[in-house]
């Protein structure tokens, strides 16, 4: 039975799969984003995120460990020299998977997987998007504006009466409380 087996074998032998993931991880480190299938991207995420975490500590041992996974010199240099400083203190979640549609030919789900810290278009447009959504929420909170209009349309005499009443009540309250305190 398949219970609890989390790894997607991607229809490959173990050696083929490890070579595939090493190649994809190298490509992602060198190019910062790659287009692939959703299944491969999800496996790649599990493969590359521990490596990026490992790259945060720049030592000979961690470089050799990462090299044993990636098997090429260039991506290791790029990972330790370029990627790791930019990642900084991010506690995991270094990659982003965005689905793009289906592939012509085999209709497989396609996506873009990218390093989060290297997509500046997305992060800059994110701020503009939040302001937009806030504007729309203000539309739902239009009841406050309508009530304010009602107050304005209401005769000024009533509002002044209310103010007088509240002040009178406050005065009485203070007069009542002061003897009890004494």
């Amino acid at each position: 039975m398949r219970h609890g087996k989390k790894n997607n074998h991607l229809s490959r032998t173990a050696s083929h799969r490890s070579a595939l993931l090493a190649n994809m991880a190298s490509s992602l480190i060198l190019h910062k984003k790659i287009a692939t299938t959703v299944a491969k991207a999800k496996e790649l995420r599990k493969y590359i995120e521990p490596l990026i975490t490992k790259a945060k500590t720049d030592s000979t041992h961690s470089r050799r460990t990462v090299f044993s996974y990636l098997k090429y010199k260039d991506p290791v240099i790029a990972l330790f020299g370029e990627v790791a400083p930019k990642v900084g203190d991010r506690p995991g979640g270094y990659t982003r998977i965005l689905k793009t549609g289906v592939r012509l030919g085999d209709n497989s789900d396609m996506c873009i997987i990218e390093l989060v810290d290297f997509n500046e278009i997305y992060t800059t447009s994110k701020k503009a998007a939040t302001t937009k959504t806030r504007r729309s929420r203000k539309g739902t909170g239009a009841t406050t504006t309508t009530t304010a209009k009602k107050v304005e349309t209401a005769p000024a005499a009533t509002t002044t009466d209310e103010v007088v009443d509240t002040t009178a009540e406050e005065v009485t309250d203070t007069t009542e409380t002061t003897p009890t305190e004494e």
């Binding site: 965005l98 997305y122 994110k126 998007a129």
Partner: peptide
């Protein structure tokens, strides 16, 4: 765009 955010050119 994806969720009001520009992803790429």
């Amino acid at each position: 765009q994806y969720r009001h955010k520009q992803v790429y050119e």
